[in-house]
Amino acid sequence: MNPGASGVRAEVALFVTCLVDLMRPSIGFAAIRLIESAGYAVRVPAAQTCCGQPAYNSGDRRAAQTLARRFIEQFESYAFIVAPSGSCSATVRMHYPELLADDAEWAPRAQALAAKTFELTQFLVDVAGLTELPARFDGSVTYHDCCSGLREMGVKQQPRRLIGHLPGARLIEMRDCEECCGFGGLFAVKYPDVSGAIVQRKCEAIRSSGAYAVALGDLGCMMNIEGRLRRSGDEFTEVIHIAELLAGRDV
């Protein structure tokens, strides 16, 4: 895609996601810096709230449909929709079409939106072709593949390629990097014992990789892993969202 007369390639709508809004706004700003550095204009639709994933996964289909329609209205006028989250982008891209399939008016709109919705690193690599990053990271980092990003969106090489372009960073793979961290949304709260045992394994894999930091693309998984590392006495291993790794912490 060529830059237009304005010098800007196209407008990207950022879906901040509920968790980033609430817990780590700096991830949102890091995503903006990255998308802008690739030559796109970033818009943040003001009335955005939640994609409906919690309702959808809890079995409240009607609530999920209501939120899906709202989301489509908010975002469908933009060329691209990008979220710094594999699971939130997967909700829009993989599940909205199914969720609204029986609705003659909304099904085509859901499909159209799905086709232009991307996870952040996927957008940066597959669409924007970004190779120069606005930051550096001096140290070794291991990457945890979050489930939705990996298995629903196909995010695997993109973050690794970007880490490859990041000055100073050295990627070390951990064992079982594709295994779930045990977060699973409400699963972590409903079945804390099982979730705790699974995330414990993940933490052991991270630690035995020897990397200074673990990067990943979903804030929910990040809070799960960071929370478990700290609870088990690891104050050292840095847990960092891929957007902040690539763009630097907020300035």
């Binding site: 809004d21 817990m23 706004p25 972590a188 804390p192 705790g196 960071e226 478990r228 700290r230």
Partner: peptide, 23 residues
């Protein structure tokens, strides 16, 4: 509100303000 979470791990504290307010 979510005892299951903190039974197994810490809950990282929020940064301080919401993204939408900061933005």
């Amino acid at each position: 509100l979510a005892p299951g979470w903190t039974a197994q791990r810490d809950f990282p504290a929020p940064a301080g303000a919401t993204f939408r307010d900061l933005y």
